[in-house]
Amino acid sequence: MKESVEELAQSGELTRMQLLELIKKEASQVSIQDIMRATSFLTEDAKYMPTVYREDYIQRFSKAFFGRIRDLKNDICEYEGKVDTNRLQGFLEVLERQRNEAKSEYELCFLKIARLISLYTTFIREEPVHPVGTKFPGGFTMRFEGGKYLCPVKERQLKNPSALCRFCVSVQDESVE
Rank of each mutant, 00 (worst) to 15 (best):
S4T: 15
V5W: 07
V5H: 05
E6C: 04
E7N: 09
E7M: 11
G12M: 13
L14Q: 05
L14H: 01
R16E: 07
Q18G: 01
L20T: 00
E21K: 00
E21W: 07
L22M: 10
L22F: 02
I23V: 09
K24G: 00
S28F: 04
I32L: 09
Q33Y: 11
D34N: 14
I35N: 08
M36T: 15
M36S: 15
R37N: 09
A38E: 10
F41L: 09
L42A: 06
T43S: 09
E44P: 00
E44R: 02
D45I: 01
D45S: 08
Y48F: 05
V52R: 08
V52T: 07
E55Y: 10
F61P: 01
K63T: 03
F65Y: 09
F66W: 03
F66M: 03
G67E: 06
R70I: 01
D71V: 02
N74Y: 06
N74V: 03
Y79G: 01
E80H: 10
G81F: 06
G81S: 09
K82P: 00
K82T: 02
V83R: 02
D84R: 05
T85L: 13
L88F: 01
F91L: 06
L95E: 04
E96M: 10
R99Y: 04
A102Q: 08
A102G: 07
Y106G: 11
Y106I: 05
E107H: 05
C109Y: 02
F110K: 03
L111S: 00
A114L: 04
R115V: 02
S118F: 02
F123L: 04
I124D: 01
R125G: 03
R125L: 14
P128V: 14
V129N: 11
V129I: 14
H130K: 15
P131T: 09
P131F: 12
G133T: 05
T134L: 10
K135F: 12
F136S: 09
G138K: 14
G138W: 14
F144R: 15
E145M: 15
L150P: 05
C151V: 10
V153K: 11
E155L: 15
E155Y: 07
R156A: 15
L158M: 13
L158F: 11
K159L: 12
P161T: 14
P161Y: 11
P161I: 13
S162E: 11
L164R: 05
C165M: 12
R166D: 06
F167S: 08
V169C: 12
V171H: 06
V171P: 02
Q172D: 14
S175I: 13
E177T: 15
